[in-house]
């Protein structure tokens, strides 16, 4: 039997014959599919810290999650679609969290609730705190606040629903679990002398060699806050790309590569997507500033240089 690449059919660029031009079934199917999916998101019954209390308050009578079909909080990851990471993720706790995430069936979503889950929060500097669950798991929606009020959490959940609404069955970048098969489980971190992300083994090995040779290791040399010659500073990527674990099976490797690519595409798509940060209500002047400007290091450095030049002249 000739294999049919289903993805080709779902491609919106697919040349549709004239007599089938009216065929828009796939779009409306997506809509129904997304509607049903987003209206029955079952969160994992799972609280970490302070934010969990606000999450419970959100589930209680006054804010009532069940209006969104989310009241069925499942204690088992096997039955849940959404992981609300509600609170500080510690190094000791991230191990079970990754395990729980791996046990959730796809499609699965992660909502980082509060400053701690998004980026470490006030406890970020602590030795046992993970600076954001997105260091280990892909996060779909971040809800800032410490803690976010129940209404803020609801806003985040609605943002998640909107995101789901925007996904298309025709686009495997959006729904990778149909395109490239079930995703590989996230490698479970190891508790050694400090927490070890298995995806970073190579990097850790490299650094250990540096350390053994008595060279400085572990800390990246960022340019000092104001530096006259920023060009001399090593160019650093915004975020360390975790080297993937080397799979021994070529087929697996291929699958992994595919998935990586799909994920990357997903990420870029997310990046370009207009975000939902709303203008503050009843706020006349700041409306056009709603989307915060991305912090541009290059521009900033250029500015510094310019200022320096001005000063010297």
């Amino acid at each position: 039997m000739p294999t049919l690449d289903l993805r080709e059919l779902h491609n919106t660029e697919f040349p549709v014959p004239d007599e089938m031009q009216g065929n828009i079934a796939i779009t409306s199917l997506s809509r129904i599919y997304n509607w049903s999916r987003r209206s029955s998101m079952w969160p994992l019954l799972f609280g970490l810290a302070c934010c969990a209390i606000e999450m419970i308050a959100t589930a209680a009578a006054r804010y009532d999650l069940s209006r969104f079909g989310m009241e069925v909080m499942r204690a088992s990851p096997r039955q849940s679609d959404l992981m609300i990471v509600s609170g500080t993720v510690t190094k000791k706790m991230v191990v079970p969290i990754v395990r729980l995430y791996n046990q959730m069936p796809e499609p699965k979503y992660v909502l980082a609730m509060g400053a701690c889950a998004s980026g470490g929060g006030p406890f970020k500097e602590g030795y046992n705190v993970v600076s954001g669950i997105d260091m280990y798991l892909p996060v779909d929606v971040y809800v800032p606040g410490c803690p976010p009020t129940p209404q803020a959490l609801l806003h985040g959940l609605i943002a998640l629903q909107k995101k789901i609404d925007g996904q298309s069955l025709a686009n495997f970048d959006d729904v990778p679990w149909y395109g490239v098969g079930p995703s590989e489980p996230t490698p479970i971190p190891i508790l050694g002398p400090d927490i070890i992300d298995p995806r970073q083994m190579d990097l850790i090995r490299q650094q250990a060699e540096l350390a053994a040779a008595g060279k400085p290791y572990g800390v990246r040399d960022l340019p000092p806050t104001i530096k006259p010659e920023p060009a001399a500073a090593p160019k650093v990527p915004a975020k360390t790309a975790a080297p993937a674990a080397e799979p021994d099976d070529p087929e697996k490797a291929a699958r992994l590569a595919k998935r990586e690519a799909a994920l990357a595409r997903k990420r870029t798509a997310q990046g370009e997507q207009p975000t939902e940060t709303p203008a503050p209500a009843a706020e006349p002047a700041a409306g056009d500033q709603a989307a915060p400007k991305k912090f541009d290091k290059e521009a900033m450095l250029a500015k510094i240089r310019e200022r320096k030049a001005q000063k010297e002249s």
Binding site: A112, S118, G119, G132, D134, V139, D140, V141, Y142, V143, P144, G145, P148, T149, Q151, A152, H155, G156, I158, A159, K163, A238, K239, Q270, G271, Q273, T275, E276, T277, P278, P280, A281, E283, P284, A285, A286, Q289, A291, P292, K293, K294, F295
Partner: peptide, 23 residues
């Protein structure tokens, strides 16, 4: 304004002066 949920924290969660300024 508590309605700040975003899809990307790297670009959205450091508020700069332009964003922070309100009359």
């Amino acid at each position: 304004n508590y309605e700040l949920a975003s899809y990307d924290r790297t670009s959205h969660h450091i508020h700069d002066k332009q964003y922070l300024s309100r009359p």
